[in-house]
Structures are given as C-alpha cells and as structure tokens.
C-alpha cells in the first residue's frame, strides 16, 4: 500500500495535536502552567539547524566557515533538545510541578518534536544541481 502525502499530513497532525493535548493537560490538571515552557523549547529546537543550513549553503560550496556555522546550529540543537527534556525533570525534582505533569509534558514535548522532525524529513526536497 502506498502512503499518500495526504495520509502523512493527517497522521502527523493527529500526533501533533496529541502532543499539544498532553502538554496542555499536564498544565491544566494541576493548575500550574510552567510545563508550557516545554512547548516553546521544542518548537524552537529545529530552528537553529534550519537557519544555519540555509545560511551556510548561501555561501560557496565547501567554504571553511560553512562547517563552523553548521556546527553552531548542531550545538544549539543539542542544547535545546536537552533543555526540553530536562526542564520538566528539574521542575518535578524540586516539587514545583507534579510527577505526573512531568511525564505528560515530557511525552508531549517529544511527540511535538518528533512530528516536526518527521515532517521536515518527509517533505524535504533534495536540491537539484
């Protein structure tokens, strides 16, 4: 069976909605809106790679500075992903949010991030030379 792009879009948006639902529930059930930070972190997590990639390919091919810019993007991506994972953990660790809220916001954040990554991987058109 061939997966059409329409199926991909519908399933990905369902997963994205589930992720947002989990995070918003984790905030609203416990009347503590701090886990909403996770959404912000995971939404801006793919940004450094995208920005630095377009920035680096706008220059010459195989320039010395290209790799430095790409490395900066990767470094920031690693930092942001770890931020999204560790913010709920340290909030729950210090009893600022509930343990259940930590698990819900962690899984919701991972779902949102995985959706964004899969979306860009599915619909990434390799450039023609």
């Amino acid at each position: 069976m061939r997966i059409t792009p329409l199926t991909k879009i519908i399933s990905l948006s369902t997963v994205l909605a589930t992720g947002f639902l989990l995070i918003i529930l984790s905030c609203a059930l416990f009347h503590n809106w701090l886990p909403l930070i996770v959404v912000g972190i995971f939404i801006i997590a793919p940004l450094p790679n995208a920005v630095c990639e377009s920035w680096a390919t706008s220059d010459d091919f195989l320039n010395e500075s290209n790799n430095t810019i790409l490395d900066l993007g990767r470094f920031l991506t690693g930092f942001l992903v770890i931020s999204g994972l560790s913010v709920p953990v340290i909030l729950a660790n210090n009893a600022i949010i509930h343990r259940a809220a930590m698990w819900m916001s962690l899984s919701g954040g991972l779902l949102v991030y995985a959706t964004i990554i899969t979306f860009s991987a599915f619909f990434h058109e390799p450039e023609e030379f």
Binding site: R74, F75, T77, G78, F79, I82, S83, I90, L91
Partner: peptide, 28 residues
C-alpha cells in the same frame, strides 16, 4: 556531526545540573 550534537547536549546537561541545584537551594 554526532560529536557536535553530543557536545551541545553535554553543555545543556551541565547547565541544568547547576540550575537544578539552584532551584533546590531556593525551594526545598
């Protein structure tokens, strides 16, 4: 590539270890 990702992750880990200790100091 993997090394640079891992380096960023390790940097974040260090930062959040200290932030965790700071929050502990303030709240608990």
């Amino acid at each position: 590539t993997l090394g640079v990702y891992f380096s960023g992750a390790l940097f974040g880990l260090g930062f959040y270890i200290l932030l965790n200790a700071s929050l502990y100091s303030h709240f608990l």
